[in-house]
Structure formats: structure tokens, C-alpha cells
Nucleic acid binder design. Structure first.
Lengths: 197, 197
DNA sequence: ACAAGTTTAGACTCCAAGTCTAAACCCGTC
DNA sequence: GACGGGTTTAGACTTGGAGTCTAAACTTGT
């Protein structure tokens, strides 16, 4: 895949909307051409097909997420605090790129079948969380769990699915409102304070 | 869509594998015909297209899940205990129908675009959880959360994504092993016992 | 001016989806 | 045991979108 000039990359955002709204199969390359203003022949000059266009969009956004998450993870706070920051960073990017993130989460199968993308998803969502869970046990800010891999997936699902509920219904996603709701569940749990049950 | 005789419905299981492994678009109707032994013309006699075949499979499994969840929810235990049972029931069905459930979770976008399926997903996963969260607050076995809708989505994501981690990697999913891992996070939270942080 | 890369319209090929036809089959009923 | 309705199936056919190819116009650096 040839290097995509910024001018074209910018216009492709419109394609993400189509992919998110109708899905990849119900979006014709011709539709992408009209929506983005980039002619079909030009699209094929840069991309092998529409799946590659989606891959490009996903990659861009996942890179952005990996970057923001990396910043969040680097602070000198406790792992628990940094975990909260990571979740906020993830939500921020999802709020910033709603269409791309919807296309990702609503097509996890396709994403998983593209090794580059699968990797980037792991880097952006899973690995940082897994690392922080581990550090949290060591610095005492988080408790150990029996199966840390599952715990990390629980976090992944919690973040992506609660965000998706907003993205898919067209409501705007406020990271500042949503992250406390998610974190209060996964950090404090749902059991009431008086634990007599 | 004509009523699908049991004999045909049974053979369609093989189609779920294809849909889960390659995705819908990379599965030709002819492939489904070969895999299931049901000839293409017969498939078109019963279904309007491959999307309808997937819809049928999803509907079957979601119905099964709704049924099992309904049983779990009806006991006279506390809401917290019944919530745990609901999660186990959901995991049990996912373990029982791995291919169909993978096809569902890996194609949430498509599922959401089919109103019948979107409804059934709500019935099988979301509504029972939402109801139990509510009852839990009233019977005191669960604490109230600021945004119950989000809490329910957190649970949805926690269950589906941790299960998907197994389904997508071909490892068999043991509900009895997985459910405690999930529940320990969402019920007890990740904060350590000594809450000095 | 020229070379090398880019952009684009438009014609073209190919493949899979889905339609249609008609023959064979099955099954309950008169 | 023939009839009529639904079922099953092969195979021919139509259609539409994906992706390829060509060649001309354009852009940019030398």
C-alpha cells in the first residue's frame, strides 16, 4: 500500500461514517468516492480495496489511541490512578473519532482477521491495561485477580461496550461523565458497603 | 421467511463456523451449501440470502439464551446471587454455541442493523441485567450506581469480551471457571481490601 | 523541455448474489 | 392409485459491484 498523502487521508473521514452506518459490505467503493470526493480510480491507486481503506482508518485511530494511552501510563501516580487515566484516554479517542471506533467495535471479527489491526488493538487497549493491573498489584493500589488476562478483557469490554452504547445511538460521548461510571463499577464493585450477603 | 424444518436447521450449524471463521462476506452461499449439505437452491427456498441464514442462527441461540437467563432470574435468591446466575447462564450458552456467539459478537454492527436481532440481544443480555441491578438496589444486595444503563453495558461488555477472548482463540470456554473471574471484578472491584489510596 | 510520479475518466473482466424454471419427489386424501 | 399441494433440487440466467487496465491530463522537480 502506497503512502497516503495527508490531503487524501483527511477526506477519508467521511468514509468512516459510511462504514459505521451501513457496514463495509453495504458500502460501495463508488459511495466512498462520492462521500469523500476522492474518485474511485484514485482510491484504487492508493488502496487495494475497501477493506484496506477501513484498515487505514482504523490504524490511524488506533495509533492515536496508543499514543494517548502511552502518555497516561507514564505518569508517576499509582497504577490505580493511571488505570483511570488510561480509561479516560481511550474514551477520549472514542469520543474524538466516533465513526472509526464504531466501525472497529462493530466489526471486531474483521479487525481480528487483519493481523496489523489486531495487533494495534492489543497495543491500544489490552496491553496497557494488563501492564497496569500487574503494576497495581506490586504497588498495592490494585488487588491481584486469579486470572489477569480475563480481568484485562473485562476492562476492555467494559470500556468499549459502554462507549458503543453512546456511539451507536448517536449520542455524544462525554469521557468525563462516562469514565467515572465505568471505573466505579470495576474499581469499587457492585456489592454494597455493608457486605452482609 | 418460510418455516425452517428442524432437519435443515440442524445442518446449518456448520454455516455458523464459516461465518465465524471468515466472516459473512467472505463466505459464499455455495460454501454454505457444501458445508451444510443443503443445496444452494434449497437455501434460497427458505432464506432470502445469507444474511437471513445468519439471522436465523443468531435468533435461535439468542432465544436459547433468553430462556436460560429467564430461569436464572426467577429464583428466590437475592438479586446479587441471581445476577451471578444470569452471567453463568450467558456464558453457558456461549460455551454451547461458540460459533454462533462469535459470529454475533464479532459482527455487532450487522446484528444491530437487524431490528429483530438487536431486540433479542437486548432481551438476552441487557434487560435481565438491568432488571437485576434495579432489584439489587431494592433488596440491598447490590449498591446503586449513578448511571444504571452504563452499568448494564459494562456488564454486557465484561461478559461478552472475556468470553470472546476464549472463543476467538479456539480455547474452550468453561463457564464455571470464567464466571468467578468476571464476577469478582464487577462485584468486588479491583481496589485492594485496605482502601488507603 | 523532460522525466517521474499522480490523478482521473471510462471501459472492461470477473465473480458471486440472487432469480427463475421446470422436473422430480413426497404425502395426505378422496 | 390418481390428484394436488408443498418441497427439493439442478442448472441456466441476470445483475451489480469489485477490482483491473489504459491512456490521457496534470504536477513537480531538474
Amino acid at each position: 500500500m502506497r503512502h497516503v498523502p495527508a490531503q487524501i487521508a483527511a477526506r477519508l473521514t467521511a468514509a468512516a461514517e459510511l462504514f459505521a452506518d451501513r457496514g463495509l459490505e453495504d458500502t460501495k467503493v463508488e459511495d466512498v468516492a462520492t462521500a469523500t470526493g476522492v474518485p474511485k480510480a484514485t482510491l484504487y491507486y492508493y488502496f487495494a480495496g475497501k477493506e484496506q481503506i477501513l484498515a487505514f482508518l482504523l490504524q490511524e485511530t488506533l495509533q492515536q489511541m496508543a499514543d494517548e494511552v502511552a502518555i497516561a501510563i507514564e505518569s508517576s501516580d499509582s497504577a490505580a490512578v493511571r488505570l483511570a487515566e488510561v480509561v479516560r484516554a481511550q474514551l477520549r479517542v472514542m469520543a474524538d473519532q466516533p465513526a472509526v471506533c464504531r466501525a472497529l467495535i462493530e466489526n471486531l471479527g474483521r479487525a481480528g482477521r487483519m493481523p496489523e489491526i489486531a495487533n494495534s488493538v492489543t497495543e491500544a487497549y489490552y496491553s496497557p491495561v494488563q501492564q497496569l493491573l500487574d503494576e497495581g498489584v506490586r504497588d498495592g493500589s490494585l488487588r491481584a485477580t486469579k486470572d489477569p488476562a480475563t480481568t484485562a478483557m473485562v476492562l476492555f469490554g467494559a470500556v468499549t461496550m459502554s462507549a458503543l452504547a453512546y456511539l451507536a445511538t448517536g449520542r455524544s460521548l462525554s469521557p468525563e461523565d462516562l469514565s467515572p461510571s465505568i471505573l466505579s463499577v470495576v474499581l469499587d464493585g457492585l456489592r454494597p458497603a455493608d457486605s452482609a450477603n
